[in-house]
Amino acid sequence: MRAAALALLLALGCGAVQAQAGAAVPMGSGPGYHDPRSPFKPLQDIEGVVSWKLLSSVTVKADKSKVIPTFPSGVLALDKRTVKVQGFMMPLEPGDKQSHFLLSSVPTSCSFCVPAGPEGLVEVRSKSPVRYTLDVVTVEGQLAVLNDDPYGMFYRVTQAVPATVTTR
């Protein structure tokens, strides 16, 4: 199943950028499109949880055969820090408990589609398996801001544990 997970990650780069070499452009579709017909409410900004607006503010330059992200200072300040991130779980392997999955800024509307570009996804590696759910998942762990990930990811959270958040 590891190969299937890697294939999904590789698919993130397909068609994500259609830019002329050297031109800075917004990546993918930002944090993704939340279909108004979705039974799931859009994510709300919560104090103490990294916002998708910040994560999706990355720009990219196309350089020959690869994409080079440029992260704003607010994102770079989070690199190697313990953060909380919320999103909709996209499992990378079968089973009801996941140790390696993606969090998306929007719910998936198609089981064969990635709902956002790499700026709307966070790869998560958890300390212990997290139960799969269609509801919003919040994890806490160490964020890595990725400049040259071979699978096209911009963000990874490692040593993640489920986190609780309080909303007003």
Rank of each mutant, 00 (worst) to 15 (best):
Q98D: 05
V124W: 06
D96Y: 10
A62I: 02
K84V: 11
V124R: 09
L103W: 01
K80N: 15
P69E: 05
P118L: 00
A116Y: 04
S57F: 00
S99H: 04
F112S: 13
G74W: 00
F88K: 06
S65M: 09
D79K: 07
G117F: 05
L92A: 12
A77P: 07
D96K: 14
S111Q: 13
V85I: 15
P115H: 07
D63P: 03
V67P: 02
V122R: 03
C113Q: 08
G87W: 04
L92T: 09
A62K: 06
F101N: 01
S104V: 04
Q98T: 01
K66M: 15
A116S: 14
H100E: 11
A116P: 06
F101C: 05
R81M: 08
C110Q: 06
H100L: 15
F101R: 05
D79V: 08
D96A: 12
Q98P: 01
V67F: 08
V122E: 03
S105C: 03
P107R: 00
S65A: 14
L103T: 01
A77K: 06
T59Q: 12
K61V: 14
V83P: 03
M90C: 11
P118G: 09
V58R: 02
P69K: 01
K80R: 15
A116C: 08
L76S: 10
S126D: 08
F112T: 14
V85F: 10
A116R: 06
S105F: 00
D79F: 04
S73C: 02
P115E: 10
P69F: 03
E123Q: 15
V67A: 12
D96P: 13
S73E: 08
L121T: 01
S57C: 04
E123R: 11
G87F: 04
T59A: 11
V122S: 04
A116I: 02
L78C: 10
E123N: 12
P118I: 06
E119G: 14
C110F: 05
V85R: 07
T70C: 09
L103A: 02
L92C: 09
S65G: 14
V58Q: 01
V60N: 06
A62G: 08
K66I: 13
S109A: 10
P91E: 01
D63W: 09
V122L: 07
Q86V: 10
F112K: 12
L78S: 06
M90L: 15
R125Q: 14
L103R: 00
D96R: 10
I68H: 07
V60Y: 05
D63A: 15
V58N: 00
E123G: 11
I68P: 13
V122Y: 03
S73R: 12
G120C: 04
F101D: 06
S57L: 02
